[in-house]
Write a protein that binds this DNA or RNA. Structure first.
Length: 945
RNA sequence: GGGUGCUUAGCUCAGUUGGGAGAGCAUCGCCCUUACAAGGCGAGGGUCGCAGGUUCAAGCCCUGCAGCACCCA
């Protein structure tokens, strides 16, 4: 028997360990012909589970469990990525506490230290994934820095390099001056901040003695003027057309720079003149590329591409051959000190035209918070275009399908404007670039130093030094779908599971990850990495705000499962807040949103919530109220199961040879279960987990619990039913419950397993776990329109009587005599067969069929089709209340009938609408008209009292 | 500026070739009836953002407008 109370905390504790120990997550346990595989988007090894993960993992686990139950060879590949910068920073912070930097350790020792850290603390998220019930194949868990995956990385790098698809180049990158590395666009967050716009006056070079004349340029970063190589104006701009080809004198450094014509200069914006600083601005760099061959630009130092910063973003010193390119006064100043000084100097020379307050998009590194500088560095790049073309085609021709479909547009948009990919990073933790330099700086790429030496015939006397940089973490992530399966080896796993079935991910990384996996997969395996991409929404807080640590509105999924008191929750949210006023604000908001903390809802309720919220939308506002509702749902299922067990354990459930008899209710619920199975299956197949959850919820609560369990009571407890009928009902109870549990298992694994273990012997089912039990299938023979019609009729009778009781304030438990008039033959049959149901559920004291309506005393009335149910009013029913009730019903029907009549009077409707639609309206009109007549007559009768 | 999506009950959201406006939570009334008060029974609540158009018929299709969100520049 199940415990009296549903307690997710205790029941969820043991099942996961059981599943994992039994090896149920390993695909060998299912040996179907078809394979099904999902790659987990590898979580960051430093990370902990957030709501986005929990949501995504619920979906992947539901899909995995669903397909596993369908008997397919199912693999959900586990693993995590090494998160280069994030992980390095974590460990740097740790050794900072020892008073050391990574340089004190040295590269080798420092990397060892990171491995130690990983061994010790890197498992947080995998533990949390287990709490979520995720049926990942942990036995084959992979890590992007594993030897096997590292080999795949080297192999890919070397092959791409051999084909000329990887090259080294000096380009502008997003430079983090604190971390001293290039960072990807994804790691740069631009937010609007307050700043200033400075208008600088650049004197136009004029003949001796001419009146001074200035070009005014605007900038938010005045210090970059030291690196200007030109001033650009729009070629169509009448104000400046005549100056094109002239020069201005760059203030402070005294260089002469040309005035050039370029579309980039917007005549409408500011003065219409733009300073061009190609080494420190992405747009300016484009302008420079268009004009670099013009003499006036080419003659500039370094061809006009003038870097002014050190890696710290301080003003650099001059190289020996550069003379005074950078004025001595600013050398060594940090960018902001230099800015101040330069503005002051310009002002004192009368060259500062204006300073305005200005809102600007400030790019900051998401890890360091430092303002990112476009910076000129030597980096490794992947030439993407040749890889992108087949990747675009794969989606165009349907080899890969996006769900929802529109996301392919986002994908195309990005892929068609794709830029070469900067893959090198100036950090220590990651896959070291397999390139070696000789003493002259020549570069050799190979799988190892030995391979390089052998290939080029270098003896031991040749000194080779490996490139110090490592690869972008996304480089290894791009190989994830095949590297985890053993590539470049031709393993059995690779053959079985690649291409994988579906990728489940958020739209925020379509560019960075999805696109790159497609490119790399096609390039190195010749096949797509996955056949479908299911893009889900982003989980937001109840107010619709993105959850973020700095906003202090994050929810920890584990807290939803286990519960958390208010004070620890507040503490958790304000922890590590730099600004105290923000901490206060967060504490206040938290106390308001969660005055009593968060109760523990259990994993199944949390998972059910995620499933129910997984519609096609982009934003998912997480509403705790729904989690509470679904926790209640778990409780409902629990208690319904207790009822089933109480009435079936140690009883004959029709498994043997004794005859059984199925009632209308039995056949009805079997029919409804079958329809629900169809809906759930179709919904999961269409990635509509919200509809699947809804169907399960509806069936369980509104049909199984509210009606079928109640309808089973008179059969099981009364003495009117035969033994065969009792067996039939018991069998239906256990079979329906057992099937329902399997139906719901992919979404709520724990509670279904717990109950299933108790129910399976009663239902005559074998198996050690519901995980590997077959998923329910539909049965065409289960549809039973007659049973459905009868039970619908029963429900109408019961609802009608209940409504009278409810509205007349008669205690629901009070037995009442009921008179029936105008009963058809069918009604009379059902009145016999359904009598126990009516007595039990509507508490009817007696039911008498009157052949002559005039015999009926004054009564309250309920209509079931043409049949009238009458409850005599004497001493029970208030005349005015019944009149009011009748009026309400008459009004409702009259309004409805007016619309229907209008429709039917319209000749074009009758003419053009499909016959079935017209017929439906006619039937409705007739039914309503009859009902109104009945009610009207009743009303007059009562009003006359 | 370009693109994508959203606007349905107080709140969060479904609504699948156009033909009955729905769920959960919240609200109101009655009930501790031995599966379940984390519950039962009953009730109220919507000009489906606005304005046009197509159609016999529009929450759904088309056009315009407004507001919101995100992405790209």
């Amino acid at each position: 028997m199940l415990d009296k109370n549903y307690d997710p905390q205790t029941l969820e504790k043991n099942w996961y360990r059981f599943w994992e120990e039994q090896g149920y997550f390993v695909p060998s346990h299912t040996d179907g012909d078809t394979a099904y595989c999902i790659m987990i988007p590898p979580p960051n090894v430093t990370g902990s589970l957030h709501m986005g993960h929990a949501f995504q993992d619920t979906i992947m686990d539901a899909l995995t469990r669903y397909h596993r139950m369908k008997g397919e060879r199912t693999l959900w590949q586990a693993g995590s990525d090494h998160a280069g910068i994030a992980t390095q920073m974590v460990v740097e912070r740790l050794i900072d506490a020892e008073g050391k930097t990574r340089h004190d350790y040295g590269r080798e020792k420092f990397v060892e230290r990171i491995w130690d850290w990983k061994a010790e603390s890197g498992g947080t998220i995998t533990r949390q994934l287990r709490r979520m019930g995720s049926s990942l194949d942990w036995e084959h868990e992979r890590f992007t820095m594993d030897e096997g995956l590292s080999e795949a990385v080297r192999e890919v790098f070397v092959r791409l390099h051999e084909e000329g698809l990887i090259y080294r180049g000096k380009r502008l990158v997003n430079w983090d001056p604190v971390l001293h590395t290039a960072v990807s666009d994804l790691e740069v967050l631009s937010e609007e901040e307050s700043g200033h716009m400075w208008d600088l006056r650049y004197p136009v070079v004029q003949p001796e003695g001419a009146e001074p004349f200035y070009m005014v340029v605007s900038t938010t970063r005045p210090e970059t003027m030291l690196g200007d190589c030109a001033v650009a104006v729009n070629p169509e701009d009448e104000r400046y057309k005549h100056l094109i080809g002239e020069f201005v004198e760059l203030p402070l450094s005294g260089r002469r720079i040309p005035i050039i014509a370029d579309e980039h200069a917007d005549p409408e914006f500011g003065t219409g003149c733009v300073k061009i600083t190609p080494a420190h601005d992405f747009n300016d760099n484009q302008v420079w590329q268009r004009h670099r061959d013009e003499t006036a630009i080419a003659d500039q130092p370094n061809g006009g591409l003038i870097n002014i910063f050190t890696p710290d973003a301080a003003i650099r010193a001059n190289e020996p051959e550069e003379g005074q390119l950078i004025p001595a006064a600013y050398i060594g100043l940090d960018r902001y000190a230099a800015r101040k000084r330069i503005v002051a100097d310009l002002e004192s020379q009368g060259l500062l035209a204006n300073i305005k307050d200005h809102r600007l998009q400030q790019p900051r590194g998401d890890r360091s918070g430092a303002v990112i500088e476009p910076y000129l560095t030597d980096q490794w790049y992947v030439r993407v275009q040749p890889l992108a073309d087949p990747a675009i085609k794969a989606v165009e021709n349907g080899d890969i399908r996006f769900v929802p479909d529109n996301w392919k547009n986002t994908y195309f948009e990005w892929m068609r404007n794709i830029q070469d990919w900067c893959i090198s990073r100036q950090i220590w933790w990651g896959h070291r670039i397999p390139a070696w330099y000789d003493s002259e700086g020549n570069v050799y790429v190979g799988r190892s130093e030995d391979e390089v030496r052998e290939k080029h015939g270098f003896g031991p006397e040749v000194e080779l030094e490996q490139d110090p940089d490592v690869l972008d973490t996304w480089f290894s992530s791009a190989l994830w779908p095949f590297s985890t399966l053993g590539w470049p080896e031709e393993t059995e796993r690779l053959k079985t599971f690649y291409p994988t079935s579906v990728l489940v991910t958020g739209f925020d990384i379509i560019f960075f990850w999805v696109a790159r996996m497609i490119m790399m997969g096609l390039k190195f395996t010749g096949e797509v990495p996955f056949r479908e991409v299911y893009i889900h929404g982003l989980v937001r807080d109840a107010h619709g705000d993105k959850m973020s640590k700095s906003k202090g509105n994050v929810l920890d999924p584990i807290d939803l499962i286990d519960g958390i008191e208010l004070e620890p929750l507040v503490e958790k949210r304000v922890q590590g807040m730099m600004q105290p006023h923000l901490a206060d604000k967060i504490a206040r908001a938290t106390r308001k949103d969660f005055p009593n903390g968060i109760p523990g809802f259990g994993t199944d309720a949390v998972r059910f919530t995620f499933a129910a919220l997984a519609s096609n939308g982009r934003d998912i506002k997480f509403d705790l109220g729904r989690t509470e509702g679904y926790r209640n749902f778990c409780n409902k299922l629990w208690n319904a199961s207790r009822y089933v067990l109480m009435n079936t354990e140690d009883q004959d459930c029709g498994l043997g040879s004794e005859p059984i008899e199925l009632s209308a209710a039995d056949r009805w619920i079997r029919s409804r279960l079958d329809a629900t199975t169809a809906t759930v299956t179709e919904s999961i197949d269409a990635y509509r987990f919200d509809l699947a959850a809804q169907a399960i919820y509806d069936f369980t609560w509104n049909e199984f619990c509210d009606w079928y369990l109640e309808l089973s009571k008179p059969v099981l407890t009364g003495d009117s039913a035969s033994d065969a009928a009792k067996r039939g009902t018991r069998q239906t109870l256990v079979r329906t419950l057992e099937t329902l549990l399997r139906l719901a298992h992919p979404i709520m694994p724990f509670i279904t397993e717990e109950i299933w273990q108790k129910v399976k012997p009663l239902a005559g089912v074998d198996g050690d776990t519901i995980m590997l039990a077959p998923y329910p299938t539909t049965d065409p023979a289960a549809a039973d329109p007659q049973a459905v019609a009868e039970i619908d009729w029963v429900k109408q009778c019961i609802l009608g009587i209940r409504r009278i009781k409810g509205e007349m304030n008669i205690a629901p438990g009070k037995p009442l005599p009921v008179l029936v008039t105008n009963a058809s033959d069918q009604d009379r049959v059902w009145l016999e067969t359904a009598r126990p149901y009516l007595d039990f559920l509507a508490r009817t004291e007696s039911i008498s069929v009157l052949s002559d309506e005039s015999e009926a005393p004054e009564s309250a009335i309920a209509l079931v089709g043409g049949m009238k149910l009458l409850i005599p009013m004497a001493g029970l029913i208030d005349k005015d209340a019944e009149l009011k009730r009748l009026d309400k019903e008459i009004t409702r029907l009259t309004d409805d009938i007016a619309r229907t009549e209008k429709k039917l009077q319209n000749p074009s409707f009758v003419d053009k609408a499909p016959e079935a639609v017209v017929q439906k309206e006619r039937t409705k009109l007739a039914d309503h008209a009859a009902a109104i007549a009945n009610l009207q007559a009743q009303r007059e009768k009562i009003a006359a009292l």
